[in-house]
Design a protein around this nucleic acid. Structure first.
Length: 623
RNA sequence: GCCGACGUAGCUCAACGGUAGAGCAGCUGAUUCGUAAUCAGCAGGUUGCCGGUUCAAUCCCGGCCGUCGGCUCCA
């Protein structure tokens, strides 16, 4: 190509290739570029469209700019800060005297629509940092951002009259932004720093098509319907009570049934897996936490101490020191190891009031905790077994999709490099031996050891971090937990700290949303409703209820003077897996007419036959 | 903890500077009914708590408690 010719832009190349309508940017040698940039001489480009993950990210980012443009027109006094693309959409933070109201959002969205319809070009220019400084009068946040940019050249983007400092890239014109919706406002600290000024953030979602946007809004509706706080109230499972205190959970009888079943299952399986159950008190001398190191590292998450007869006591934020003391209560031989102590231990942690959230974030909760004391040579096998056990437990609760993370040594760490290397290798080996895909989170381990975190995925594909397996070099050291080896000398034990469900409260909340309140049979608080059609069948219905209960099922009778449809509806709304209809016909035949929760009707059958169906369903993690 | 919104009957929600209303649930009665709501009547609230402004506050203002959306935090 001769130098006299005007170099062709990517946009022009896109036109030639018939891609101008769909392309929002181009990928050239791994760099994502605006279409206004020159096309490469060899002409090798990959066009990015809103259907590409990278393409939609650009659209989302540009939508944030369009929104900022609308905000600056309607609220010229608003100071602009940053506005990135995020999952499903974007946000933009503004510094305004009074935060935006929902009505403001409506006006902003309307103005955005006008900008989109006008299809204004979004232009890019490169200027020196000094020049850029002159271009943002009265925008202190932009000045601050500029000052922090190491390069001498920066890029500016313009939509209509709205100029923003931005790395880009952006879509070529505002008309390419289409399916979006402003969602809500929120406070957010400048640069995420709680010491800095609180800004007003506007969240929006944006998609490639209206259809995807609608699907996303439908998903949000579904999430709302499954909200464990709403279901907890509707199904009478639990409550939080202002008079008791924020973040403290009351388990109602039906919720308590589910919890008891979860606990029973947990205890049985742990006993089978070679764990010993222990119990420990809710408070202990403050000094214990000084020894464990929690006081130094995590004091801000602990409740204040309680003075008793001149001694400070502390509500426990963890169970580990207790288990260590049990371990230390006598001499341990290498033959005794591994020692596995498990406890459903209730702990109390101070969480800032603004972070509390139903069952998912509370101040008092029960960990399905265990501490394993091992010899170094047992680490590999133990972790492998533990991983297997964890996945088995999760599967029982209907979770068979997960993301696994291996967190390695952070900058600030306790223990020896040699131990860290061994522990990380053991964790890695176990994951690979189980053929589990995982991601490494470098430096994200706890100061006392590396860990495996398992994030389960629920029915809606949302991730929840519940299980954690942590190697701990710190506590055996601090508490001097040892065993006598074959050589007769004392050796330092290695500890594994692990929780499978994490917190029972939280796991129950996740389960509730996972199943949308429709618990599988084995967990359902009420498994069978027996419904009499008229009062003529009450005696027979009572008999059925008694028989079911005698067989170990959780059955309730509804003998009220109501129509069948009314009772069915109530049973359905309460998400009871089975309703047994008992009318004159059934009574005469000594049969029941089962109806499944979803509406499916089974043929009338003998009670014994129905119980066989129940038994066949008891070990199913989903229904 | 920070920013914003909210707090009215058991639940879901309405109304208003002049001491509040509906539906569902509850209770009573009638109805005896076949797979998602039978009808009628009755009862139910110091409008989260404390203080202030006002002739008068549930409504306006302040503080506290709690809830919600975020931020921060999360051993």
């Amino acid at each position: 190509m001769s130098s006299a010719e005007q170099p062709m832009t990517l946009m022009e190349l896109a036109k030639k290739q018939g891609k101008a309508k769909v392309a929002v940017a181009a990928k050239v040698e791994n760099a994502i570029l605006d279409l206004s940039r020159p096309a490469p001489e060899n002409g090798v480009v990959r066009w990015l469209t809103p259907a590409d993950p990278e393409g939609i990210e650009i659209v989302r980012h540009s939508t944030a700019h369009v929104m900022a443009a609308a905000v600056k027109e309607l609220f010229p006094e608003a100071r602009i800060t940053i506005g990135p693309a995020i999952e499903n959409g974007f946000y933009y933070d503004f510094d305004v005297e009074t935060p935006f109201t929902p009505e403001d959002l409506g006006r902003i969205e309307e103005r955005m629509g006008e900008i989109v319809r006008a299809d204004l070009p979004i232009t890019r220019e490169e200027v020196s940092k000094e020049d850029a400084m002159q271009r943002f009068p009265g925008e202190p946040y932009k000045e601050e951002l500029l000052a922090d940019i190491p390069d001498n050249t920066v890029s500016l983007y313009k939509v209509g009259d709205f100029l923003d400092l931005c790395r880009g890239p952006h879509v070529p014109s505002s008309g390419r932004v289409s399916a979006y919706k402003l969602m809500n406002t929120a406070g957010a600290y400048w640069r995420g720093d709680s010491r800095k000024r609180m800004l007003t953030r506007i969240y929006g979602c944006a998609f490639a098509t209206k259809k995807e946007l609608d699907a996303h809004l439908a998903l949000l509706e579904e999430i709302k319907k499954r909200d464990h706080r709403k279901l907890g109230k509707e199904l009478d499972l639990f409550s939080v009570n202002e008079e008791i205190g924020a973040g403290l959970i009351l388990w109602h009888p039906k919720g308590a049934v589910v919890r008891r079943i979860m606990e029973d299952f947990w205890r049985d399986e742990h006993a089978r897996a070679g764990y010993d159950m222990v119990f420990s008190p809710h408070i202990a001398k403050l000094d214990l936490w000084r020894v464990s190191g929690h006081l130094d590292y995590y004091r801000q998450s602990m409740f204040g101490s309680i003075e008793v007869e001149g001694q400070d006591y502390q509500l426990k934020p963890m169970n580990c020191p207790f288990h260590i003391q049990i371990y230390k209560s006598r001499m341990r031989s290498y033959r005794d190891l591994p020692v596995r102590y498990a406890e459903l231990g209730t702990v109390y942690r101070y969480e800032p009031s603004g972070t509390l959230h139903g069952l998912l974030r509370v101040r008092g909760f029960t960990q399905d905790d265990a501490h394993l004391f091992l010899r170094p040579d047992q680490l590999d096998e133990e972790i492998y077994t533990l991983l297997d056990f964890t996945l088995f437990v999760l599967r029982r609760f209907g979770f068979d999709r997960y993301d696994i993370y291996l967190s390695t040594r952070p900058e600030k760490y306790a223990g020896t490099l040699d131990n860290w290397a061994k522990a990380e290798a053991a964790l890695k080996k176990a994951l690979e031996r189980k053929d589990l895909p995982y991601r490494v989170d470098p430096g994200e381990g706890v100061f006392y050891g590396p860990k495996i975190d398992i994030k389960i995925k629920d029915m809606l594909g949302r991730s929840w971090q519940c299980s954690t397996i942590q190697v701990d070099f710190n506590n055996p050291e601090r508490f001097d937990a040892t065993y006598v080896g074959e050589d007769g000398a004392e050796h330092r034990a290695i500890m594994i700290h692990r929780a499978l469900m994490g917190s029972l409260e939280r796991f129950f909340g996740v389960l509730l949303e996972h199943y949308a309140g429709s618990f599988p049979l084995w967990l359902a608080p009420v498994q069978v409703d027996v419904l009499s059609v008229t009062e003529r069948q009450i005696d027979f219905a009572r008999e059925i209820v008694a028989a079911l209960r005698a067989a170990g099922f959780r059955a309730e009778g509804d003998y009220r003077n109501e129509k069948l449809g009314y009772k069915i509806r109530e049973s359905q709304i309460q998400k009871v897996p089975y309703a047994l209809v008992v009318g004159d016909r059934e009574k005469a035949q000594r049969q029941v007419a089962p109806r499944r929760r979803g509406g499916e009707q089974l043929p009338p059958m003998a009670p014994a036959e129905f119980m066989e169906i129940l038994r066949g369903e008891m070990d199913k993690p989903t229904t």
